[in-house]
């Protein structure tokens, strides 16, 4: 859908008669027509149905209902799992219903692993559940060409990674506590972002949906910011600040010049606001009122300058 903002602006400026706004939006193609509505309803019913059904099954297993024997529970999950895979096979992975069925199969896989752990008390750590789940879903993600499934896979990998650090405290002694978790998830999401953007730039069409890349960029940049803040607050040079600076430079070069994504740049501005005010508070700070005023004005100044810069970049790109 296009032209929504322009038409709304023109209407507000009085260039379009007030009673004609809706028609103008229709003419501009900014409102959904009958085929678009059909597609929307189709996907809403399909994905909401799949998601609620799968979530319901997971909730059911989590309840651990004693009235139902273990064999019946296994049968239930396995039947659903096989049914989802049969649906993928019959419908085909290229069609949207096939993708939804695959998403359902991916969710049932996790339910099955959780049920195994719950029933046999294997002594496995929680991270192993998520790692096994991620490993099982990986081949499907590789063939499905479906960004949502990749995001789901990345979520599983993130959970496995952060739980792993929690478990393996003694073996990964180089970093301390939550900082190790941060480094691991930062590394994971940054590699994912790098690979994703490289493949998208090399011309893989289905990876070019910006919203999914933005989710990964928010995770990667968010963890970079958290690393920098941890470094500043704990007053030790763990490399977090350097990693953040490198991330910011790389993101600027990539998103200002190659990919041109203002969303990530706006996130970068917010990250600068957070990091700079943390530095000021930590290093130049005696607890007095004046310092708070300085930090407050600094936050306002940096964000306003950032807003102004982003607007001028937007203007440049609009030309």
């Amino acid at each position: 859908m296009h032209g929504r903002h322009e038409v709304l602006d023109w209407a507000e400026e009085g260039r379009i008669p007030p009673g004609d706004l809706r028609r103008a939006l229709e003419v501009a193609g900014a409102l959904p027509d009958a085929p678009a509505w059909r597609q929307f309803l189709d996907r809403l019913l399909l994905f909401a149905g799949t998601l609620l059904l799968a979530a319901g099954v997971i909730f059911f297993l989590a309840f651990n209902w004693n009235e139902l024997g273990r064999m019946a529970k296994f049968a239930l999950v396995e039947v659903l799992f096989v049914a989802a895979l049969v649906a993928v096979w019959r419908i085909g992975i290229e069609r949207v219903a096939g993708k939804a069925a695959l998403l359902g199969a991916a969710l049932f896989t996790g339910a099955l692993f959780a049920l195994i752990g719950q029933t046999y008390q294997t002594g496995a750590d929680t991270f192993e559940l998520f790692a096994a789940w991620a490993a099982a879903v990986l081949p499907w993600a590789l063939v499905a060409r479906f960004p949502s499934l990749w995001l789901f896979w990345l979520l599983l990998a993130n959970l496995a990674a952060s739980l792993y650090v929690g478990t393996m405290r003694s073996t990964l002694w180089v970093f301390s506590g939550s900082e190790r978790q941060l480094w691991l998830v930062f590394g994971l999401n940054t590699v994912a972002l790098f690979v994703w953007e490289s493949l998208a730039l090399s011309g893989i069409e289905w990876l070019r949906e910006r919203w999914s890349t933005r989710v990964v960029a928010v995770a990667s940049g968010g963890f970079a910011t958290a690393l920098a803040v941890t470094d500043i607050v704990s007053r030790h040079a763990g490399g977090g600040l350097a990693a953040w600076a490198a991330w910011m430079v790389a993101a600027y070069l990539l998103y200002r010049h190659r990919v041109k994504d203002l969303f990530v740049l706006a996130g970068g501005v917010l990250s600068v606001v957070v990091v700079v005010s943390t530095v000021v508070i930590r290093h130049f700070f005696r607890v007095d009122a004046g310092a708070f005023l300085v930090v407050g004005l600094l936050v306002i100044g940096i964000s306003a300058a950032g807003g102004w810069w982003l607007k001028s970049v937007a203007a440049e790109e609009a030309k």
């Binding site: 203002l262 004046g290 930090v295 407050g296 203007a315």
Partner: peptide, 25 residues
């Protein structure tokens, strides 16, 4: 040029952040 929605969200969050420091002052 109109600011995209996420720039406004960023400004809103930063504005609230700035307000907190002004209040502390």
């Amino acid at each position: 040029v109109r600011s995209p929605w996420f720039v406004r969200v960023m400004l809103g969050i930063a504005g609230w952040f700035g307000a907190l420091f002004l209040l502390l002052f």
